[in-house]
Design a protein around this nucleic acid. Structure first.
Lengths: 246, 246
DNA sequence: TGCGTGCATTGACCCAGATCAACGGAGGGC
DNA sequence: GCCCTCCGTTGATCTGGGTCAATGCACGCA
């Protein structure tokens, strides 16, 4: 069966394949998805969408890093989502965006027109099911994040963040959490501060503190080497049973 | 058509009706739902379920208030969900619970056996759709909550919490946010502290402060009178465009 | 009527992290 | 080469909210 699936086949980071929404799609369904999808790129620093914008597409991150932010007028800003490859933006069933979306590196999105995507969800139950699963996973992540924001110390917040990035990083060879204990930070100190509910000065001081205590080594501003991940985990205040966290 | 729908018809606070999942269910579908559902009650203070418990039911709150909590071993606790009537507990597709669920008042749940409920989701797309919508609403709420935890002052946190409860309260006559500006607090000072990432002492001091400044009046420990909701809204630090939040 | 227990309030003090300010180093344009 | 800008680090100081401790108050129970 040779149908024109190349574009979507090649979209290996697209959640529709990568996170297995469509592991169960048959060829006809893939063609349908393919028909309503297009790619769009943004350069680092660019605003992808702003709170209140009408949103007639949903999208998934193929490449790069974007952030979801909520701000108060006086400038205080809280990051409420970190969008890495395979993460989903937008919500079927709501037409305006609640948050500011910004590209922090160059970003490529795989977009779907919202209306036909919604129609498709009704027709193909297992895609709908996958959307629900993704939303609930995000909800769990948001709740862990709430524990971090409400109850953890600055040092624990930094350690937790490093563990989070380490766990989410997929190495070129496909491994996750490999013995290469190098963590590439996808965001700036400022974005980290907004992620963790801290100031950039405190973030910086905690990095210095962890370095002086031998928990981490710094290699430039965006690269952290962790001699022993177990030590870092202890610092994070997480008592998770070691189960898979995503 | 006289089918035995009385039980589910009477379950007016059940989200399956109340939040309109099944506004679109036909009689046969209601019978199906009815077949896998049962009620369960808990008394105030009782643990409904603990983190790690196997979870073979999903449920919605019919009456009372329950909390979803995440704790670290040293005792620090963060409330990650406040479950009021019509809220949903549990997630289709995952068998173990991530959080502690506690009844803070007497609680009645409308429970569905998870497996048949999941089967039903696949068969009845608009219920699946409603589940997704509810999950995404919760996600939005969680993100606003993250802004509160990460960036708001103690006073703003208290004011935001009061606004949240006011907005979610449905008065006996069906009105929401009526001119009766009395807010009944569903939880103790301790639970509020764990909700807001504060200590009970700080919660208490902020209540006193708001009272001394004439923003609120206290009537016992569980009842707050707000002369002017607009003033309270200003204190909350929310710049929401006044749109419906819920 | 007094006592115990569990919440809430208040006071005194302290400290983690914010704030304000100076400095350093890596590009990048010319 | 030089300068400029952006980002991160470090230092000095301040303060909001935490900590520790005492007190108040309502309710149940004997």
């Amino acid at each position: 069966m040779n149908k024109p699936l190349t574009a979507i086949e090649n979209c290996s980071s697209c959640p529709i394949r990568h996170r297995a929404v469509c592991a169960r799609c048959d060829d006809d369904e893939l063609v349908e998805l393919n028909a309503i999808k297009f790619y769009k790129s943004y350069s680092a620093g660019q605003t992808i969408a702003m709170r209140g914008d009408a949103l007639d597409v949903v999208a998934s991150v193929v490449m790069g890093t974007a952030t979801l932010e909520r701000a108060i007028e006086d400038g205080r800003t809280q990051l409420v989502g970190l969008l890495l490859p395979s993460d989903f933006i937008g919500r079927p069933g709501r037409s305006t965006l609640q948050y500011d979306v910004t590209a922090v590196t160059d970003v490529t999105l795989c977009c779907f027109y919202r209306k036909p995507f919604e129609d498709l969800l009704v027709r193909i139950p297992h895609v709908q099911e996958r959307m629900l699963e993704m939303a609930l996973d995000e909800l769990d992540a948001a709740r862990d994040w709430m524990l971090l924001l409400g109850r953890k110390t600055a040092r624990e917040k930094i350690a937790s963040f490093l563990m989070l990035i380490a766990k989410r990083t997929v190495h070129p060879d496909g491994r996750v959490l490999g013995d290469t204990s190098r963590i590439e930070l996808p965001i700036s100190r400022e974005a980290m501060a907004n992620f963790l509910g801290l100031t950039i000065e405190t973030v910086s001081r905690q990095f210095t503190g962890l370095r002086k205590d031998g928990v981490i080594e710094l290699d430039g501003n965006r690269s952290v080497i962790v001699p022993d991940l177990e030590t870092l985990l202890l610092e994070s205040g997480d008592d998770s049973d070691g189960g898979p966290l995503v």
